[in-house]
C-alpha cells in the first residue's frame, strides 16, 4: 500500500503554466519531466491505497472501450475519498502526472494537434481540472472516479451493468452523467436508469437519438413545474415511465 499524495496549488499552477515547455513529455514521454519539482511541492494525505495504474487498459483503436472497467478500478482503489477530497484539482493533477501518466497519454493524447494552442488545450483538459465540470468530464483520472462513484451509488449491485448501459451512446452519457440537474439527483438518475436498463434488453428504442432527446426534453419541462426530487418513489417512476412511453410513441408515429 502507498500513501496517496497530491500537489500543492502552487505546483499545479507551475505545471499549468509550463505545459508549452513540456509538450514532448506529455505527448511522447520524451524530454524533461515537468513534475520533477522540489519535495516541498508534494503533500502526503492520510489515505493508503493499492497500486492501480498498471490495471488501467486502453485499446488504441477504440480508446473509450475500456472506460467502464477502468472506472470501476479507479473507484474501487480510491473509494475512501470523501466528496470534498475528490473535488480537489491538486490530487487529480498529481495522479495524472505521476501515477497514471502513461494511461492518460494513451487514452487522450494519441494524436498531437499541429496547432500548438490546441495541443496545449488538450493537455489542460485531460491532465488538469479547472472546475467541477472538468473533473466530471475531462480530467483523465477524476472522470473515471466520478463514473465509478455514480455507478456504485445508482446501481450498487451491478455497477458494471450501469456503465455498460449509460456509456453505450454519447447522447445518453452526456445527458445523464454530465448534466448536474440529473447526475447529482441520485433518485432521478436511478429511476431513469431502471427504465433504460429494461429497454436495453428489449429493443433499445429509447436509445434512439431522437426518442431519447424527446424523453429528456419532456422531463426537463416537467421539472420546471414539479420538484422531481420531492416526488414519492411511485409517482416518480410513473412520471418517468409515462414520458418514456410518450417519447417512444411519438417516434413510432413520426
Amino acid at each position: 500500500m502507498n500513501t496517496l499524495q497530491y500537489y500543492t496549488s502552487e505546483t499545479v499552477e507551475s505545471l499549468r503554466n509550463g505545459i508549452q515547455d513540456h509538450l514532448d513529455w506529455y505527448y511522447y514521454n520524451i524530454g524533461p519531466t515537468p513534475h520533477l519539482l522540489p519535495v516541498s511541492g508534494v503533500r502526503k494525505s492520510r489515505l493508503k491505497v493499492q497500486s492501480f495504474a498498471s490495471e488501467l487498459v486502453v485499446d488504441p483503436d477504440r480508446p473509450q472501450k475500456n472506460d467502464a472497467e477502468n472506472a470501476i478500478t479507479v473507484y474501487n482503489t480510491l473509494r475512501e475519498l470523501t466528496p470534498h477530497q475528490s473535488s480537489l484539482e491538486c490530487l487529480w493533477v498529481y495522479l495524472c502526472h505521476v501515477v497514471c501518466a502513461t494511461y492518460v497519454c494513451k487514452r487522450w493524447l494519441s494524436a498531437r494537434p499541429e496547432n500548438n494552442e490546441n495541443a496545449i488545450r488538450k493537455v489542460k483538459n485531460h491532465y488538469f481540472a479547472s472546475g467541477t465540470r472538468s473533473l466530471i468530464r475531462d480530467n483523465g483520472v477524476s472522470r473515471l472516479w466520478w463514473l465509478g462513484r455514480t455507478a456504485h451509488e445508482v446501481a450498487p449491485d451491478k455497477p458494471d451493468e450501469f456503465l455498460q448501459v449509460l456509456l453505450a451512446k454519447q447522447d445518453v452519457r452526456s445527458a445523464l452523467l454530465e448534466r448536474p440537474s440529473i447526475s447529482m439527483n441520485v433518485r432521478l438518475l436511478r429511476g431513469i436508469y431502471e427504465i433504460l436498463r429494461e429497454n436495453w434488453y428489449d429493443g433499445q428504442e429509447l436509445f434512439d437519438r431522437v426518442t431519447f432527446r424527446s424523453w429528456m426534453i419532456a422531463l426537463n419541462r416537467k421539472g420546471g413545474v414539479i420538484l422531481l426530487d420531492a416526488l414519492s418513489d411511485i409517482e416518480l417512476k410513473r412520471l418517468l415511465q409515462l414520458e418514456a412511453e410518450n417519447a417512444m410513441s411519438v417516434n413510432r408515429s413520426g
Binding site: P83, T132, S183, M184, L227, D229, A230
Partner: peptide, 16 residues
C-alpha cells in the same frame, strides 16, 4: 410539505 433542496456542486451533493 415543507421542502429544502440542498445543492453543492463541488461535492456533487444534492438532497431534499
Amino acid at each position: 410539505k415543507y421542502v429544502l433542496l440542498v445543492n453543492c456542486s463541488k461535492t456533487r451533493r444534492r438532497e431534499t
